[in-house]
């Protein structure tokens, strides 16, 4: 790049930016291995807090919460991915139609409404129609806000696949369904998997909406952690945080490489 593009001071700011982004996470990771019960003083390296997470007095709560989180994230991400794939086909492979603009706005609506508003509205809705709050209400709310996140990589991938593929298949007497199942869906697969993973992370991440629509006594990991943090940050919270952090980073890295993989083919 030409020297004109270089501004002294921009590199230090970039480094500062990365330090601000990563330092808190790294510090929490390091302190999760701290043997001392005091969160301020460094004792020695130890895995006691990880043992505490899996077998300590609060382990039952966290285990149940982790299962709920996992079940909801898998179910919500799967549903959202199917819905988003179908919506992407309608938006990109079905020509123009009445209500197309409105449909596009609708898919993105969950991104535009502030989370706290969605949370309040969903709580009011379930309460007004007398729907018992529990895992199902959390799941329904999660599917809705996962749809746009699943849609983004799937639509991007579909846009990169030229129409000749399914047209050729249909010229060779494949039915529409066969062309979709045997030609288009396999080509879309990297985008679909990336969409699933992003939706999975987004569902796992949610606190506010879950906190409003969950029934009494039902916790997901974020609501359980929030409850525990209100009593003060204990070392076992740092151990759980570190584990969740690793899951997020692994899933996002996988999603990133899947999207890249997709780009090579087209």
């Amino acid at each position: 790049m030409s020297p004109i593009a270089r501004y002294p001071g921009f590199l230090p700011v970039t480094i500062l930016c990365l330090v601000i982004l990563y330092a808190p996470l790294l510090v929490v990771m390091v302190y999760s291995f701290n043997e001392s019960t005091s969160i301020t003083r460094w004792g020695s390296f130890s895995l006691v807090w990880y043992a505490e997470v899996f077998s300590g007095p609060e382990s039952a709560i966290f285990k149940a919460a982790a299962w709920n989180s996992l079940i909801i994230a898998i179910a919500a991400a799967t549903s959202a991915t199917v819905i988003a794939t179908s919506a992407a086909l309608a938006m990109l492979r079905a020509g123009t139609f009445r209500g197309k603009t409105a449909s596009f706005a609708l898919i993105n609506l969950p991104l535009m409404v502030p989370e706290i508003v969605t949370a309040v509205a969903t709580l009011i809705f379930f309460s007004a129609i007398g729907f018992q709050r529990g895992l199902l209400t959390i799941l329904l709310a999660h599917i809705v806000f996962c749809i746009p996140f699943a849609y983004l990589p799937i639509a991007a991938r579909l846009q990169g696949i030229e129409a000749h593929f399914e047209e050729a298949a249909m010229d060779l007497y494949a039915t529409r369904w066969q062309a979709l199942r045997l030609v288009l869906l396999p080509l879309m697969l990297p985008g679909i998997m990336a969409g699933f993973l992003l939706a999975f992370i987004i569902s796992l991440d949610d606190f506010i909406i879950t906190n409003f629509v969950k029934g009494a006594g039902i916790e997901t990991l974020p609501t359980a952690i929030f409850g525990a943090v209100k009593q003060g940050i204990k070392p076992n919270i740092m151990a759980i945080s570190t584990l969740m952090l690793l899951v997020s980073v692994l899933v996002v890295t996988a999603s990133y490489f899947l999207s890249k993989l997709g780009n090579h083919n087209s």
Binding site: P24, V27, V28, I233, I237, M238, S241, M244, L245, V252
Partner: peptide, 14 residues
Amino acid sequence: WVNLLIRTVSMKFM
């Protein structure tokens, strides 16, 4: 992509 709650708690800790 790291959980917002965890990031906020980490900042509180920092």
